[in-house]
Nucleic acid binder design. Structure first.
Length: 652
DNA sequence: CTCTCCCT
């Protein structure tokens, strides 16, 4: 049942569907107001009576906050009372007064640990479900299970057109074949964005970096006012295009062109101050050109964009279950992604989208992006599901089931860490506690062990610091000065103790932003590390892990790291690169590591591997081989000739 | 000789 309508005109229709069906799929285009309006319709219709709560999930923290703000404002309410939000580290809701609550979908999954049937909610709306983020998919699978036990719980899944049928079939519990008995309905709501004309190239583009530059200049010469947004795949490409455009802009102003160009790179790793420039208003004599990664596809919205340039590619995470290695791969985008990019040109007035590929090539693109659930390491997911009482994860109702081998990999790792027993059951207390940490299982294990090694104070800091990206800030025009400052913190043992140094120095200097600036450190990131550390510390207290310090002895800290990360070990190879102990694969030290370009240690452990041009270990620390045998005898055995080999631990 | 993005 597809009904086309505008939201406000059919308020009663929406309410009728929520009344009649356990699940309603709302196909809402951007700008139809579904996120802000539907929760208010439900509130007014009495869905939050008797202390019940209407919950609305978002994939991103900023979205949860900003949309909660808007709804509170519309209702003339103070944020945190009738309308509130809950995200990690920031709970702006009242357990008694809040009727409409916005939260991240990760937070919703966490809430299930304390309240498995989510009893306080009468309706849950999963917004942006078409993005298929990891936590949205986990929530979807769990909610289907909850719905069987709670017939009164209503679900609204807000999605783009493409996936409506898939969601409908997943949530429809009617097996009779009689559509009158469906438990799931679909409603389509038109959006209120402006039309965007799409242009294709006549022939394939050999070099999209060059073509992006040319297209920007062409727009500048031939089109009327309006800012430009160009999509590229990564930092390197963004910087390249930005610098080529900067050269062009300079020569234009030399020739006295009256209209100027302001070139602005945008990607997540860019220092905060430089990111903010993208949102600054410019005089009417200036055309803004934002060169961005896919951060501009969903995470941020820039006003005034009229022209979009789309290179057809995106960098995505991929997971290889046979090697347990994650990689970043430049991949063709999906049709859904292409239309999302084009839509960025039509938010303020009619726009144009220049696709740097042919219409035939567009037709060959996949309809939608592979869900994150199918291209990630599943150890944290499996641990969560086990903690939520899902005994047979292989038979869990996934909207898109991940590869079985990825699940087996995850089970093996969790078993090796002691979080699961050999029947695959969550162990108590280790597994139960591991699941409670908001960290990947290896970090959780390392934290739980730190009491035994007598270095919990240092380990909590290290774990917190490792959650923050780009602690070292490298401004484009001060690369050498930054490197010089960063070297002052580096230690021979590797990245973990280096980050411990940075944190301790930050505290010693009273968390000064001035001091961070002088040493090219990410001030906001370090403040976040302080908050993360506090949360971890609270959990450690809860589990009675003693507060101990190694008092300057690095070895106990390194051994403690090994106790969590023994599976990620490598030894030096005579070629100068490294080989994994697990299966003898070639690895290299990531150029961001303090060990890069230094005398290579014989044995190392690392937090993760990413594959770009090579397989790179990120966050690397030197260890002794004897520690591996001592701390993970179930994983490694000392071979006769003195080298280590791995025993594959298997879970039945 | 280099990290897409996001979350507990």
């Amino acid at each position: 049942m597809f009904v086309w309508l505008f939201l406000i005109q059919h308020r009663n229709n929406i309410l009728y569907l929520v009344e009649s069906f356990q699940t309603v799929i709302i196909v809402g285009e951007t700008g139809c107001g579904k996120t802000t309006q539907i929760p208010q319709y439900l509130l007014e219709a009495g869905w939050a009576a008797e202390g019940k709560v209407i919950g609305v999930t978002q994939p991103r923290r900023v979205a949860a906050i900003s949309v909660a703000n808007r709804v509170a404002e519309e209702r003339g309410a103070l944020l945190g009372h009738e309308v509130g939000y809950t995200i990690r580290f920031d709970d702006c809701s009242d357990p008694h007064a809040t009727r409409i609550k916005f939260l991240t979908d990760g937070m919703l999954v966490r809430e299930m640990m304390a309240d498995p049937l989510l009893k306080k909610y009468s309706v849950l709306m999963l917004d942006e479900a078409h993005e298929r983020t990891l936590y949205t998919d986990i929530a979807i699978g769990l909610l289907k299970k909850i719905q069987k036990k709670r017939r009164d719980l209503r679900l609204i899944v807000a999605s783009a057109t493409l996936d409506a049928k898939k969601f409908h079939d997943f949530f429809n519990l009617n097996e009779s074949g009689d559509p009158n008995k469906d438990t799931c309905g679909i409603l389509t709501v038109e959006g209120r964005t402006f039309p965007v004309d799409v242009f294709y190239t006549v022939s394939p583009v050999p070099d999209y970096v060059k073509a992006t530059v040319e297209t920007v200049m062409k727009i500048h010469e031939t089109e009327d006012d309006g800012d430009v947004l160009a999509f590229l795949t990564g930092q390197e490409e963004v910087e390249k295009v930005a610098s080529l455009l900067q050269d062009q802009a300079r020569s234009l102003s030399r020739y006295g062109m009256k209209k100027h160009l302001r070139i602005l790179p945008m990607y997540s790793g860019l220092p905060y101050a430089e990111q903010m420039k993208v949102f600054e208003r410019v005089p009417s004599s200036v055309r803004k050109v934002v060169v961005a990664t896919n951060i501009a596809e969903t995470s941020i919205t820039i006003n005034g964009i009229v022209f979009v340039i789309d290179c057809a590619f995106v960098k995505l995470r991929a997971y290889n279950p046979s090697t347990a290695i994650e990689s970043l791969v430049v991949t063709p985008i999906s049709k859904a992604s292409a239309s999302q990019r084009a839509g960025r040109a039509g938010r303020n007035r009619p726009g144009k989208c220049f696709r740097l590929y042919t219409e035939e090539d567009f037709e060959k693109l996949p309809a939608s992006t592979v869900p994150e659930m199918q291209r990630t390491n599943l150890a944290p997911v499996i641990l969560q599901l086990k903690a939520l009482g899902i005994d047979n994860v292989l038979r869990f109702s996934f909207l898109s089931p991940p590869p079985a081998q990825t699940m087996v990999q995850a089970l093996e790792l969790l078993y090796a860490l002691g979080g699961l027993d050999h029947y695959g059951r969550l162990t108590d207390p280790t597994g139960v506690r591991m699941a409670e940490f908001p960290l990947s299982p290896m970090f959780a294990k390392m934290l739980l062990e730190s009491g035994n090694f007598g270095c919990s104070k240092e380990i909590v800091t290290i774990a917190a610091m490792m959650q923050i990206q780009n602690i070292f800030v490298v401004p484009t025009n001060q690369k050498k000065a930054a490197a010089r400052e960063h070297r002052k913190f580096a230690v021979a043992e590797g990245d973990h103790l280096t980050m411990l140094n940075v944190y301790e120095a930050f505290i010693k200097h009273q968390k000064s932003s001035q001091w961070c600036q002088e040493h090219f450190l990410n001030y906001k990131g370090l403040l976040r590390a302080v908050t993360v550390r506090e949360q971890l510390r609270r959990l450690m207290n809860k589990f009675k892990v003693p507060r101990t310090s190694s008092e300057g002895d690095p070895d106990v800290i390194l051994k403690c790291i090994v106790s969590g990360f023994f599976a990620n070990a490598a030894r030096i190879h005579h070629s100068g690169s490294y080989r994994t102990l697990r299966d003898d694969r070639e690895l290299h030290i990531h150029p961001n590591s303090v060990l890069f370009g230094e005398k290579p240690p014989k044995w190392v452990v690392f937090n993760e591997v990413v594959q770009t041009s090579k397989y790179y270990m990120r966050d690397v620390t030197a260890v002794e081989s004897s520690w591996l045998v001592e701390l993970a005898p179930h994983f490694y055995k000392q071979a006769k000739h003195g080298s280590l080999a791995s025993k594959r631990s298997r879970v039945l």
